[in-house]
Each structure stands twice: as C-alpha cells, then as structure tokens.
Nucleic acid binder design. Structure first.
Lengths: 337, 337
DNA sequence: TTGTAAGCGTTATCAC
DNA sequence: GTGATAACGCTTACAA
C-alpha cells in the first residue's frame, strides 16, 4: 500500500505514466475519457504525488525557511515570535507552501545554518528577522540571488525586499497620544539601547515632542532590560527625579507593567497621577489593573505580507515597492485615562 | 555560481562523479590522494549536496513534521507550544533533522493535512500532540506504518510509541498538595472536555480525593475554554454553588488566573479564603498578585525524548519501552498559602 | 580502487 | 492526443 506511484496508476488505468502526469497537472490537451479513467484510479488509491520527486524535478521544495535566533526557553515566552510563526504558516499554507523552522543560538551557528539552507536548497526562500546594522546574512543572500524578505528596516530602502512595522511611527503615535491627553513631562523607557526597535521608537518619541513644542529632556529617557524587573528598576530611577514624569512610554508591555507596579507601590494613582502606555498589545494588557494601553504591531498583517512577497519573489513575480511599512495601532485602555 | 553539483567537482578534480559522492560519504575504500583532491575542490567551491536530490534518492527528507491545531492568535500566547517547538527544533538539529510546522484550524483541514504529509512523504515522521480519545490520525498512521510519536497518553500503552508528561500524576500531585494544606472542598476546572489532558488530570484529581477519603462531587468539576475568560466564567459558576470550594485546581495557568481574578472580584482573599493552583508554570505565575502555584511540565525533556524517539523510529532503531513518562514538578508560590 | 550505469518519482520534450 | 524518453542530482551495485 505504501508506495503508489504514477506508473502504478498508469498500469491500472491502462494508459502511459506520462498521461497520468498530464492529468494530474491539468494538461488541457488530454482526452476526457482518459482523464476520467485516470482520476478514478487516482481517487481509488488515494494517490498523491511524492513531494521529494517533485522537489528534485521542479528544483523547488515549496518550503519557506525561518531561523530563530534564541535559546528555546527565550522563545517560549515570546509572543511576538509565536504569533509571527503562526501567521506565516497560515499564509504559506494558503499558497501551498510549508514552513521549515530552524534555530541558531550562537552567531557562529547562525552563519552555518543560513549557509546550509542556502546551499542545500532545502528551502525556496527565507524570512529574516532581527536584522543587525551590518547584516552578513543579507550580504550573502543578496550576492547569491537567493529569495528572502527581511522583517525589519534596512537602508537603502530599495536594496532588498523588506516589510517593517513602523516603529518610528509607533513611538510617535504613543507619545502624541499622551501629549493630546495633556501630558508634558513624558518619560521613555527603552529596551537594550543597541536594538533598532529601541532607537526607532525613541526617534518617534522625540519627533512627537518636537512637533508639539516640548523640549527633549534626556533625564526622561532610560534604558533597561525587557522584563518586569527592568521596568521596575527604570521606574525607580524616574521617580528619583526632582520633577517625575506624569506619563510613561515603555518599550514593551512587560516593562510598562513593571513600571506601573513600582509607581503603584509608591502610592501613585493610575491613570490620574501618571499614565502608562506599552507596546505589543500582549494579553498581559488585559490582565493588569488598571488595564494597559498599548501600541499593537499588526503581526498577522506583517507576517502575511512578508510571506506573500517571499512567495512572489520565489515564483519570479515582481515585488514593488521593495520596502513596505505596516502601520501600528493604538489600543486604548484604562492606564491612559 | 549558483549550481555546483558533484559532476562539476568531479570535472575539476579530474575524477568521476561517483568518486566525489564516495568521498563525501566517507567511503573508506577511496584512495587518500583522490580524497584530498576532491575535498580541495569541494572546499574551494563550498559545495554542499542538494537536499532535494538526496531526499529523492534516499527516500527521506530529514524533515520532522508538527501540526498545530489552533488559530494563529491562539498559538501566539501559548507558551507550551512555543517551548515545545523550540526544544524539538533544537534536538532535531542535533541529529541533522529539521522541523516542518503546519497548521490546521478545523478538524476537516486537520485530516487533510495529515493525509497530505503522510502521502506526499514530505516529512519522515510526525510528532502528534493533543490526542483525542479515538484519534483518527493514530489509526491512520499506524495502519500506514508511518513513523510517529505521540505526546500524550494512549491505550494500550504498547500499541504506539508515546511520550507523556504524567498528567494523571500531575493532577494527583496538585490535588493532594491542596488536601495536605487542609482543603476538603476542592474544585477542578478543566479545558475542553474531549481532550486527554483534561481527562487525565481529572483522573488524578479524583484519585487524590479518593485516597484521602474525600467524596467526589461532580458539582465541583467544570469544563471551560483555555483562556482568561474561560477561567472567569468557570469561577462564576463555582461561586454560585451553595458551598463554594475553598481551593481550585485549574487546567492551566491562564484558566487559573482568570478564576483567581473573578474570585478577587467577589472580594475573596487569596490564599486565605481560597487557594489556587495552575499548570505549566508559565511566566504568568510570577506576574500575578498573589503569585500562582503551578505544576510544571518538563517541556524540554518531553520534547527532547519525543524527538529522539521519532528519529530512532525513522532510522529503524528499536524503541523500548513504547510508552515513556516524564514526571511533573510542583512550583509552590503564594496562591496556595 | 575507480569508473560506468541504473534508478529514486516526477515533469517536459519529443516523436508518432 | 498519447506514449516513449530524457533529465533533475544523488547513491550504490556492478564492472573493470
């Protein structure tokens, strides 16, 4: 039972193996009668073509590659990554593609993995995440002409095909929202200061202040690690200031919640005395008291668009413009009044 | 540059293509001199064999399959799945395998996906999760002799190869822990009632009650969806009882937190008036107030063992015993006093 | 010890 | 319109 192949179908239907292939590929030239006969046998045996043979013959696997750059436990609780992966899978499936996920913990193994995926032709294209300023992967893939899409920002914009959530815009949106609520002393708590996300959102924050005639005060900007504890520590620092802020833009929900906890611990009422806004719109936002306003990255759209574009690249369709921006969305809740 | 193949290496090294293949497969019969010559060219061109051709020839793809049974947004915040996937990827990589992840939202598409993966031979084996009591996938895979490992329980134990976190034991452990704390009216909030996990933990719960001479009262057992809201709804029901429980065993941390919230909303003090215990030991446990006691499933071990066994099956090595149990661990926190 | 050649299951290009 | 036949890139008998 295991190994039905086209020649087997052909034998039972009394036609040649080539005809079976034609029928299965909807060749219009094939006679109705033969088509029926072949399809009947195909149906009966539940024949499906062997993906391995198709891959070799067609020179493509219909597999998209995604490489995770974290240790397993770090990935486990990263909703961004899970959501991304799930949406990629879904969109890929719609186009008849599958997702192959690999992991690379160290920078060295990263290079090795990308090199392997590239050379073995195990996948037809790659989705890149967490780009660095001088990304070797991008250089390599570009010079090899291997299809890939970057999730993130890259300069110059037309050099490669990329899809980005608008981090600058998101930082701007969050800050302006607070300004419109009447706040003037607004703090920004960033994550690791080297990350592009941190810097981009900070840029949006500064831009919003500027546009509304508020002087930028570096005392209101702190960087910390992306965790509850990080948020708590950052807030402690901000509360030491002679003029503490009346509103806080935090790099992610975890930091925001940590900061909010600390403020509450100091007897500060939220949102009356201090407003908070986070990023990513994680379920955490609904779990805390008061619920947390958050700027949502539209992960499903991000993933969908990136996947669509990658498949277009693979199949040789034009992709224009090269860089696409997916706007963020603000989800207003109690923490901003 | 793109397409280096063995025949190309052979030409440059002045040997036959078969010799190149032998060198790459460490055939001991090949002469040292030739080996050097071939490897030099291989090195120089950075040649790596084409995975597609190897797949067809060897009749195996070195791909493991995992099918997710949820909508993307549901997966996004499911740490169990992410942790599992990450650990599978890591272990697979150690053995030279990759992970192919697919998704099936509806039961119908589920069958279709499994059938496709099975028939197209796109993957060498499957890791099954979330088994149901009469799992059609298992029947089908078994009759086809397709390699797979079930993460979960299955009877009879020797029928198929499975790795289970000890759900019965975990349910028992959680319940007994509460009993030892002095509780007698203990509720159990399960997930979807069809799931094996739900039933297994319930069995452990009943077993613990029985062993400590506490009568089983079905009013204390409710089923709900695995979410904050599900937990909240279930708790509302439990609070309607003439004699509400003094302790709650919830199927997962999300449900537990939802239930805890609702209890708090009704002015119930935790853990003084009501104790809570969840499952999975997610970061959520540390984020809530009071922190949540939880029974941890050892996901990395689970994933590692399952992956190892699947690969053993694929490569025709014996796997004994067929069923393996990975014990759980209780992480005590504030919610149980 | 090495080269020649068959074949893995497809698709596509030929003749007929 | 249909049936032989040649690839796709690799592994492995078998021949030399």
């Amino acid at each position: 039972m295991a190994d039905i192949k086209q020649s087997e179908i052909a034998r039972l239907a009394g036609v040649s193996q080539a005809t079976v292939s034609r029928v299965l590929n909807n060749d219009p030239q094939v006679n109705e009668e033969m088509r029926r006969r072949v399809l009947a046998v195909v149906e009966m045996l539940g024949y499906v073509p062997d993906a391995r043979a198709q891959s070799l013959r067609a020179q493509r696997t219909r597999l998209l590659g995604l490489v995770i750059h974290r240790a397993p436990h770090a990935l486990a609780y990263d909703p961004f990554f899970s959501a991304l992966m799930a949406s990629i899978i879904e969109e890929a499936g719609r186009h008849g593609y599958h997702l192959c996920v690999d992991a690379a913990r160290t920078p060295r193994s990263q290079r090795a993995i990308y090199e392997e995926l590239l050379r073995t032709r195990r996948v037809d294209g790659l989705i890149l995440v967490e780009s660095e300023t001088r990304d070797q992967r991008i250089v390599r893939l570009t010079e090899q002409g291997f299809p890939f899409v970057l999730l993130g920002r890259y300069d110059p914009p037309d050099a490669i095909c990329s899809v980005d959530n608008d981090n600058v815009g998101a930082g701007f949106m969050a800050t302006e929202f607070l300004i419109r609520k009447g706040h003037r002393r607004i703090a920004y708590i960033g994550g690791a200061s080297g990350l592009t996300v941190t810097r981009d959102r900070l840029q949006g924050y500064r831009h919003a202040l500027e546009q509304h005639g508020i002087a930028y005060d570096p005392h209101y900007v702190v960087f910390t690690e992306s965790s509850l504890l990080g948020g708590q520590r950052a807030m402690e620092d901000l509360l030491q200031l002679p003029q503490p802020p009346t509103a806080v833009v935090a790099m992610d929900d975890l930091i925001a919640v940590g900061a909010m906890r600390t403020a509450q611990g100091h007897g500060i009422r939220i949102p009356d005395e201090m407003a908070f806004i986070g990023f990513n719109d994680t379920p955490l936002c609904e779990m805390v008291e008061p619920t947390l306003t958050s700027v949502a990255i539209d992960i499903p759209t991000l993933a969908r668009v990136a996947t669509e574009r990658l498949i277009a690249l693979i199949e040789g369709r034009p992709v224009e413009p090269r860089r696409l921006i997916v706007p963020a969305q603000l989800r207003e809740r109690e923490s901003t009044g």
